[in-house]
């Protein structure tokens, strides 16, 4: 197989062709990524100056409560959200720092 790294011209051209063959999949995934970015941004903005529980975050962002928990679990895994103290039957969450080398989601561009 020829060397097709994305760095060289041949690689860039081959990648372009591959993108064309996977056009529909990429469009659907890109649309999901854009929605995810908006939702993650809303969660992070809500946590910017307060610690909130998952239902409080759902109320603040207008997102479904189970979807908020999914994002919280994911951002916690990557160190972007930290678990705080318990409030009744729920835990509060606050912003953490992303791991070194990981860009902020809202700064990323797809293509």
């Amino acid at each position: 197989m020829p060397d097709k790294t994305v760095e060289n011209e041949a690689g860039k051209e081959a990648l372009k062709k591959l993108r064309a063959t996977r056009k529909d999949q990429i469009a659907a995934a890109t649309s999901r990524v854009k929605e995810q970015r908006r939702e993650v941004k809303a969660i992070k903005e809500s946590l910017a100056d307060s610690e909130l529980t998952v239902p409080e975050l759902a109320a603040a962002t207008g997102l479904p409560v189970d979807q908020v928990l999914w994002y919280v679990a994911t951002l916690k895994k990557y160190g972007e959200i930290l678990e705080g103290p318990k409030a009744g039957s729920y835990f509060r969450y606050r912003l953490g720092q992303p791991p070194a080398g990981e860009p902020e989601a809202e700064q990323e561009s797809t293509n």
Binding site: V65, D66, V68, A73, K76, K77, S89, Y90, F91
Partner: peptide
């Protein structure tokens, strides 16, 4: 695990 503790997947409540 996903939450590092047992929480309800619906809303993050610790189940009673």
């Amino acid at each position: 695990g996903p939450y590092n503790r047992v929480l309800r997947p619906y809303d993050g409540m610790e189940p009673d």
